[in-house]
């Protein structure tokens, strides 16, 4: 079962929910793996023990044009939808503009004389952390300046493989990196806060998930802060509210220290345990009767 923890807006508590949910699952002896898909700002590792063990490089293919073979026909340039091939017939000039390349393979397919080959270039890393010799956390990380984390996210998720529970900590927003993360998920948990910003961004995320036909529920973090508008909206829209995490400076403080709430403030452990049970019931509705 794959669960994505997402939020339209950053900083609503996605990482708080992901890491604590991971810990209660682990305490429950569930076969669980956490995947940090926020490859631009991965943070889950801050909350879990251990040093990264396996480190892999995520690469993309980059075309290389052999100018001795090239006939300067311009077909690769015509086929490139990203303006990544600079081409002039007169004066003869052909260059790959690497930062514009999307690794689609069109130029390679276009070339009739075999002048184009590909080299691999690094765009990010995957690292593995283990707890009791079992894989616990997979972290995707873009190299600073990499334009799109999508490939790194997809690779991180596939690296996780099959487990009873795979928790994906999704990147913020509603564009391609978010889609790439929620796409393989069986169920999406949206974390929000009861403020105008929180509601606005939640509405956008839910609109996206509805278009994708993804089942989803909402966790309200910092409940008690802000106002009632969010709750009214959830009722109006018929969106399932999975849990309330109260607004408590103690939680913020534990989080700021890079520690897990369920470990330092055991009073909150039942909140995450109940959340886990409810998510499992939602993701496998057939098993509850």
């Amino acid at each position: 079962m794959i669960i994505a923890i997402a939020s339209g807006k950053g900083g609503t508590g996605k990482t708080l929910v992901s890491t604590n949910l991971f810990q209660v699952s682990l305490d429950d002896r569930v076969d669980v793996v956490l995947v940090d898909c926020d490859a631009e700002e991965p943070n889950d590792a801050v909350f879990l023990p251990g040093e990264p063990k396996g480190m892999q490089t995520v690469t993309q293919q980059m075309p290389v044009i052999d100018k001795a073979v090239c006939t300067y026909c311009g077909r690769c340039h015509d086929w490139c939808s990203y303006n990544a091939i600079f081409f002039l017939r007169e004066p003869r000039r052909i260059d790959v503009l690497e930062d514009l390349c999307h690794d689609c393979g069109a130029c390679l397919a276009a070339c009739k004389v075999g002048a184009i080959t590909e080299k691999t270039v690094p765009i990010g890393t995957l690292s593995m952390r283990y707890i009791n010799k079992r894989p616990a956390l997979i972290e995707g990380r873009t190299l600073v300046g990499t334009a799109s984390p999508v490939k790194i996210i997809k690779q991180a998720i596939s690296e996780a493989g099959k487990h009873d529970l795979v928790i994906l900590d999704a990147p913020p927003g509603i564009s391609c990196p978010f889609i790439a993360t929620v796409e393989p998920a069986d169920y999406v948990v949206l974390v929000t806060e009861p403020t105008p910003f929180g509601l606005n961004d939640l509405a956008l995320s839910i609109e996206t998930l509805e278009q994708m036909g993804k089942p989803h529920g909402v966790v309200v973090n910092r409940a008690g802060l802000g106002d009632e508008a969010l709750y009214r909206w959830l009722v109006d829209k018929g969106v399932l509210q999975l849990a309330d995490i109260p607004f408590d400076r103690a939680i913020a403080s534990v989080y700021a220290e890079g520690k897990l709430v369920v470990k330092v403030l055991p009073a909150y452990k039942p909140v995450f345990q109940t959340l886990l049970d409810r998510i499992r019931a939602q993701a496998h509705p057939s098993t509850i009767a």
Partner: peptide, 19 residues
């Protein structure tokens, strides 16, 4: 012709004016 490019309009326009 490069004005509506999704990406890389600058290099495409440079290529156009030189051509």
């Amino acid at each position: 012709p490069a004005a509506q490019s999704n990406e890389g309009a600058g290099p495409a326009a440079a290529q156009f004016v030189v051509s």
